[in-house]
Amino acid sequence: MLVLQRRVGESILLGSEIEVRILGLRNGQVKIGVIAPKHVEIRRNELEEINRRAVVGDWRTSSLAALAQRLKNAGRAEADSKPDPEKRPAEP
């Protein structure tokens, strides 16, 4: 792997058509700008990893059922905590 150090505002060139510029740093995150032709696909690797990790395997079915029950219970609890608009307050 080629490792480069760049300052904010500096960039690197990939081939003759793609420029990657460091736009800023904040809270441990790097803001990157990419200038590339339209035909170059720019993908977020972490999003692909999350989607692939989410794919269900046999071992997960029981865990999913348990999570479903928890989601259902949480939904019921929330519904119970909301005032029923049909119910009027008791007359004094």
Binding site: I50, R53, A54, L64, L67
Partner: peptide, 9 residues
């Protein structure tokens, strides 16, 4: 999308 982490449970 839901993600289950087998290692951390």
């Amino acid at each position: 999308v839901l993600v289950l982490d087998s290692q951390e449970g």
